[in-house]
């Protein structure tokens, strides 16, 4: 640790000394050593340092593009170390929206995807962008809102009824508005309710789940959230309550996809398959089921791989 800090100091010192020493002590008649050294030393040194830490120890690197919910909930931090250790792989997690994750797959910038956008996933597979898709797990969405419940949705059985009530009463609703999986899910519910959400009451935030929950809390409005993020923010003092849950249309299935290796010679299809085989295996599925169960009194994710279902 202290070595690292001193490295930083050296950098700063290097920059300053470049100026103060190289520029201010007038150098002698330009000979090869006296002039070339102070200006050229840093660039040759620097890139070398840039590679040492990241590239040396890890022989196998795999890029996993996923939705922010799997990272933000802590699930990946909980699962991945086992995988990395077992197979000597360094999994690089890029947490983005489902839309960008799929685009990364199309561009060949990721080896494997873990996302929740069933329709878009199907399109992706049909277009030949992916070579293998497996169900992994699901979690669920909840409709949350202020305790006063101005739209009177508490106790409604379906998400569609709840959305209709919110639109009719023109109660504030904060939408992700970022084409994420959650946003897609929300749009589907509006579609099913045959409603076009427009008006002052409908706020399109264009932000991540946590920010949207905080906004809804500040505005005393409703929103659609995944359960994991909601519970995490509840612990931070969020005042919104769960109003509607359990509807089958609120289920949120996660799939894992191996990107077509034809996209780029750098794609590690072998590692992607290894990852898929591992995450759908029974022991890992069991681990998913117990994730945070004790702490929260409920599971955040429910395993759903074919192997798991057959075993049940």
């Amino acid at each position: 640790m202290f070595q690292k800090m001193s490295f930083y100091k050296i950098l700063v010192a290097l920059i300053l000394s470049m100026l103060l020493v190289a520029a201010c002590a007038p150098t002698a008649t330009p000979t090869a050593e006296s002039v070339a050294v102070p200006t050229q030393a840093p660039p040759t040194k620097a890139p070398k340092l840039a590679f040492t830490n990241t590239e040396i120890q890890q022989p196998q690197e795999m890029i996993l593009a996923t939705t922010s919910s799997t990272q933000d909930s802590g699930l990946l931090d909980y699962l991945l170390p086992d995988f990395d250790k077992e197979f000597n792989i360094k999994t690089k997690v890029i947490a983005v929206g489902s839309g960008q994750a799929l685009q990364m797959g199309k561009d060949g910038d990721a080896d494997v995807l873990l996302i929740h956008s069933p329709a878009a996933e199907k399109e992706f597979m049909d277009a030949g962008d992916g070579v293998r898709r497996e169900d992994v797990m699901y979690n669920d969405f909840v409709i949350v809102g202020p305790a006063e419940d101005p739209a009177k949705i508490t106790g409604l059985k379906t998400s569609v009824d709840a959305f209709k009530a919110i639109a009719e009463s023109e109660s504030k609703f904060v939408s992700r508005g970022d084409d994420s999986g959650t946003h897609v899910k929300e749009k589907n519910i509006w579609k099913k309710a045959e409603l076009e959400p427009v008006g002052d009451w409908y706020v399109s935030a264009g932000q991540n789940m946590g920010a949207v929950l905080t906004m809804a809390d500040e505005l005393q409005g409703y929103t659609l959230s995944d359960r994991a993020t909601y519970l995490a923010f509840l612990q931070q003092g969020l005042s919104l309550k769960i109003m509607v849950e359990g509807d089958s249309s609120l289920l949120n299935p996660y799939g894992v996809i191996a990107v077509n290796p034809a996209k780029s010679p750098k794609i590690r299809n072998d590692l992607a398959n290894q990852f898929i085989d591992w995450i759908i295996s029974i022991p890992v599925q069991e681990k998913i089921q117990v994730f945070k169960k004790e702490e929260l009194g409920q599971s955040l994710f429910y395993p759903s791989s074919k192997l798991w279902q057959e075993a049940k």
């Binding site: 002590a25 007038p26 150098t27 002698a28 008649t29 006296s34």
Partner: peptide, 8 residues
């Protein structure tokens, strides 16, 4: 001393 330095 500047001029001397310039001349090395």
């Amino acid at each position: 001393v500047y001029g001397l330095r310039l001349r090395g």
